[in-house]
C-alpha cells in the first residue's frame, strides 16, 4: 500500500480550488479568442473582449474570474493501492474546500437546506464528490467549481429508445435555445446519454471536463458533436444572449450502456468560465 498524508490532500484541494477560480484553462481562452475574431455582432464582440480582458485580470491579480465561485464538485480516481493516512478522503476534500474558499477570498455559495431556511454554510461545504476506484497507487483529483446560473439551465430527460440520436439532438438544441443568455454564453454543453437516471446526469457533468476542441472517440458521436455545435451556434443567441454567432464553444457527449427499455439523456450547461483543474498525487 502507498500511504498519502491526509494533510497533503487537504492542501492540494485548497490549491486546486483557488487555481481553478483564478486561472481560466488555455483551451477555453483560446476558443474565446477565436470566437472574438469570428464574431459578427458588435455587441457580441465587445462582450467577448470583456471576457478575455477579465480572464487576464483574474490571472494576473489572483482574483476569481467570476463572483460565482461555484459548488465545489470533485471527480476522484482513487488507486486501489492507496491508503489515506490520518483521516478519510471525503473529510480531507471538505477541509481543503473550507480552506481554499476562505483563504482564497472565494464566495461561499452553499445554503444548508435547499427550501426552508436556505442558511449559508459559510465555508462552501459540503462538496460534491464523485469517486471511482481504479487500479494503481495514484490519487487523481479533478476540481470543478460549478456556477449556479448555468446549472439552473440543465435538464435530464428519460427519452424513448424510438426517439433515437436525432431525438436527443433536438432535445439538446431545444435546451440551449430555452436557456438564452441565462447560462452565460458562450457555453460548453455537456451531454450525457445512457446509464440510469442519475448516471446520465453525472455523465453530462463529466463531459464538461473535456479539453475544448477534442471530440468523442466514437466517430458517430464526434459527428453528432460537430453537428450540434453548428446547430446551437445557428440559434443566434450569442455572447450573453445579446445576439451573435457564438453561443457555444463546444458540445461534448459522453455515453454509457443503458437498460433495453430506456434512453436517458441529460444536458449540463456550463458558462464560458468553465473551470476545472486537476492534480495527480
Amino acid at each position: 500500500m502507498r500511504e498519502i498524508d491526509y494533510e497533503l490532500v487537504v492542501n492540494k484541494v485548497k490549491e486546486l480550488c483557488m487555481d481553478a477560480n483564478y486561472n481560466l484553462g488555455s483551451d477555453v481562452e483560446n476558443a474565446l479568442k477565436k470566437a472574438y475574431e469570428n464574431e459578427e455582432s458588435p455587441t457580441g464582440k465587445e462582450v467577448l473582449r470583456q471576457i478575455l480582458e477579465n480572464a487576464k485580470i483574474a490571472r494576473e491579480e489572483k482574483l476569481p474570474m467570476c463572483q460565482d465561485t461555484g459548488f465545489a464538485v470533485f471527480f476522484i480516481e482513487l488507486g486501489d493501492e492507496v491508503k489515506i493516512n490520518g483521516g478519510i478522503l471525503p473529510d480531507a476534500i471538505a477541509e481543503g474546500v473550507r480552506k481554499g474558499y476562505t483563504d482564497g477570498y472565494l464566495r461561499k455559495s452553499i445554503v444548508d437546506d435547499p427550501t426552508i431556511d436556505r442558511k449559508n454554510t459559510k465555508d462552501n461545504t459540503p462538496p460534491i464528490i464523485h469517486l471511482d476506484i481504479v487500479r494503481g497507487d495514484k490519487l487523481k483529483i479533478v476540481c470543478v467549481p460549478k456556477g449556479g446560473g448555468a446549472e439552473n439551465m440543465s435538464e435530464v430527460k428519460m427519452m424513448k429508445p424510438a426517439d433515437g440520436l436525432e431525438g436527443i439532438k433536438d432535445f439538446v438544441v431545444d435546451r440551449v435555445r430555452r436557456s438564452g443568455g441565462n447560462p452565460c454564453p458562450p457555453v460548453i454543453v455537456g451531454v450525457g446519454i445512457g446509464g440510469t437516471f442519475e448516471r446520465c446526469a453525472m455523465l453530462a457533468k463529466k463531459a464538461l471536463l473535456r479539453t475544448v476542441g477534442e471530440h468523442n472517440r466514437d466517430p458517430r458521436f464526434a459527428a453528432a458533436e460537430r453537428e450540434l455545435l453548428e446547430r446551437v451556434n445557428n440559434l443566434g443567441i450569442g455572447p450573453m444572449g445579446l445576439g451573435g454567432r457564438t453561443t457555444a464553444l463546444a458540445v461534448n457527449i459522453e455515453t454509457f450502456p443503458c437498460h433495453l427499455a430506456t434512453m436517458p439523456a441529460a444536458v449540463n450547461m456550463n458558462c464560458h468560465a468553465t473551470r476545472h483543474k486537476e492534480i495527480v498525487i
Partner: peptide, 26 residues
Amino acid sequence: ATGGAGALIAKSIKSSEIVAYEDLGP
C-alpha cells in the same frame, strides 16, 4: 452586464458599503 466578468467589473467599483441585511452575507 457581462456575466463572468467579475474581476473586470470590480475595477469600476470605487467604494462599497453594506447598508442593509448584513446577515445575508454575499
